[in-house]
Design a protein around this nucleic acid. Sequence first.
DNA 1: GCATAAAATGGAATTGTTCCAGTTAACGAA
DNA 2: TTCGTTAACTGGAACAATTCCATTTTATGC
Lengths: 151, 151
Amino acid sequence: MPYHSGMTTSAAERDLRGAAVRVTKQRVAVLDAVRRHPHADADTIIADVRGELGRVSTQAVYDVLHALDEMGLVRRVAPAGSPARYDPRVGDNHHHLVCRRCGRMVDVDCATGAAPCLEPVAAQGFSVTEAEVIFWGYCPDCQSKGPAPAG
Amino acid sequence: MPYHSGMTTSAAERDLRGAAVRVTKQRVAVLDAVRRHPHADADTIIADVRGELGRVSTQAVYDVLHALDEMGLVRRVAPAGSPARYDPRVGDNHHHLVCRRCGRMVDVDCATGAAPCLEPVAAQGFSVTEAEVIFWGYCPDCQSKGPAPAG
DNA sequence: GCATAAAATGGAATTGTTCCAGTTAACGAA
DNA sequence: TTCGTTAACTGGAACAATTCCATTTTATGC
């Protein structure tokens, strides 16, 4: 029996059908979770999905996150030294601001326009397909608290 | 007995003394290794250092790499989904071009001038200290070979 | 030289993620 | 509506990169 969420077709469900892939309860739940928690890491998503569905394998969540990333419904962001985060905002060219102390991540639109920095002066023969920009700093809450995460 | 490399004082040795830290053979060897292999990962550095010194603990190399990063003698670069790389070029504001297929990394000067993209339009109360820019694409060698790293 | 704190050692542990073989279930066709 | 195919999910084990810990070594200031 094809999966259907219940009363009404959810946005997540429609987006998955639009991508022409199998619509499973795990996929719907993961996509919903990413949208509920923008920039969450895999652990948070796994916990949220388990809260919704009960037992779900870790592997399934990772598989779905990869699949969603590949089909362009979420964007995987991996700041240096921290686990990957998943961003539901896709299709535009925005970047991220990450707090060095607490890891909080927020979106920023690019200063330079729609396709910022996408043209390095000398590409040295590389064909460039994407520019990834991460701004590092301290969030408002952490500016007063000093640099150490366990301080 | 204070460490001294031998005949003459090497550049690495001088740079370490300039940073006012203890100069050990491990530190000299690691700094030299990073300079010999720009953008190498920890494994490569470890192998190189062992080639120079014989037995050296993994931990020592990681410790030294962190220390060098903190004292500003090398720069740690961690492209999404790959082990950290160590860049001997510091003090200027350059970015990186990474091949999605083979992982090759090269330096690029910024298109926008000296401090590119360093001013996001809305910083949302964050104090921004650094902008990290990675351009993703395919290097000359890999452009013909298709996208899979194991193809 | 001597003391002392910093650095290195070696081994085990953690974290985030992936691999694998077997089972389940979504979807298209009949 | 049922059936077959194949993608997706499960559970458990494996993995790679990195870090933690207690102990030993060693560079440096006096």
